[in-house]
Design a protein around this nucleic acid. Structure first.
Lengths: 244, 244
DNA sequence: ATTGCATGATTGGCTGAGCCATTTCGATCT
DNA sequence: AGATCGAAATGGCTCAGCCAATCATGCAAT
């Protein structure tokens, strides 16, 4: 490199975008701006191609990509429709791939530990008495599910959902939901082990007591510890699977 | 419906899969079996089409879908490569999922305050000496931009990007970026005011000192205060705009 | 020996046309 | 009103051709 840096040295590389990417982005913008809502139908391929002045296969590639991304559901002969845009639809497709790299598991749960702590801190301040009561009922019902891992998973999710809602911040709720959803593939096996279910129930109870006491610091700590236990149980399962 | 149920009533619906989906799944199997690893190149489109006895556009649709998902990186003339399958490659959908939330400034900045605190906590523990040095250079350069709001915005983003990267967690990085970009629209005007730029620079410096001191608690607090100041300045601008 | 440039091969990008497969909708019949 | 049928609409796929960008190789200049 010479002594005289190019005047372009500080510029980002030119981002090349294929037509299909631009079409997909256009559709995503319509979703973001609410011009397209869950369940809405996209214009037919031939019409979109004409509107956007591109070929039909380019439109197809864009729509196929959005379908794989979970944004669009496609029915041959029927049309393409915006999906429900929920966490399962949008995050489900990447779940499996994340689970192929162990680093992702560690980072996911570290992030989750921090963020569930944040959620719990706010929930301890914001949850209504009714919400706390409802949470207690969920805990009581959760005891009955210890012998049924499938039912426990449902109860576990409901418990966490109630706290995401109770924190009173829609962004934190979405983030919590996202991280939980992304961890599901990693968690498949751990949630079959009764000892680990017992530990989760114990963690839940501790978290609940801190929330009931309206103690943000204790709630944050309880949530973080719960997530650390969840991480540990997931790693142990992963390790023992590798041995077989 | 008659009293005599069809013998097919209990059968699951036939799952229809397009060719592109099958091609994508075949590639997925190669990734799963480690026949394909991060960085590996896929066979060329023409070859894949021949191998799988499908047309080239069908292969393209499959690869395009995997590219949008972040599983594959495609270079025109160069080929298609398996991505690192890490958070950077795969977590785009989180940003989209978060962008679907109705924008509530108070909640956005409360969430951001918490999460930037988390990011700073980890960055204080994880940033290398080189990264800290680079951050200091950015701060020095930032002084020169105080009289040019456009340049300041660029420098501001670079500063925050370096910390998201420095926290060493792809999930936190993606969430931090996503929340930042959601609030940009509202920050346009605030970032034209020199007094507010001075305050931001002061906040940045305080955050930097805590990071340099490797003090997670101080870094978290500095980051949270900075976000609270950003929120306050945004609301003040919003309010005065509404009056005109 | 090394570096830079030109060229050809390879690989992705895109289009247009044609035809097949599935769904939807409207008209007609019972 | 409900069922059936046919046409229209819409997605699915292939083929062929050509363009755009990258990569590898060979040759010339230093």
């Amino acid at each position: 490199m010479g002594a005289k840096p190019s005047i372009f040295q500080q510029e980002a590389p030119i981002a090349r975008q294929s037509l299909a990417e631009m079409v997909a982005k256009r559709i995503l913008e319509m979703v973001t701006s609410r011009a397209l809502r869950p369940g809405d139908q996209l214009p037919p391929e031939r019409e979109l191609a004409e509107m956007l002045d591109v070929s039909r296969p380019s439109v197809r590639e864009a729509i196929r990509g959005l379908a794989i991304l979970g944004v669009v559901n496609v029915r041959q002969g029927g049309g393409a429709f915006i999906s429900q845009l929920d966490g399962d639809a949008l995050l489900g497709p990447i779940r499996f791939f994340l689970s192929l790299e162990d680093l992702n598991l560690r980072e996911l749960y570290d992030a989750r530990s921090l963020i569930e702590g944040d959620v719990a801190r706010r929930a301890a301040q914001n949850m209504s008495d009714d919400e706390i009561d409802a949470l207690e009922h969920m805990l009581d019902a959760q005891v009955e599910t210890l012998s049924d891992p499938q039912a426990f998973r449902v109860a576990d999710l409901r418990f966490h959902e109630a706290i995401w809602i109770g924190c009173g911040n829609a962004f934190l709720k979405r983030i919590g939901e996202s991280l939980n959803s992304l961890g599901l593939e990693f968690r498949r096996r751990a949630s079959e082990n009764p000892d680990l279910l017992e530990q989760s129930l114990k963690d839940h109870r501790k978290l609940f007591e801190a929330l009931k006491a309206r103690d943000p610091a204790a709630a944050a700590m309880a949530a973080e510890e719960h997530m650390q236990n969840v991480y540990r149980s997931t790693v142990v399962q992963d390790t023992s699977e590798n041995k077989t």
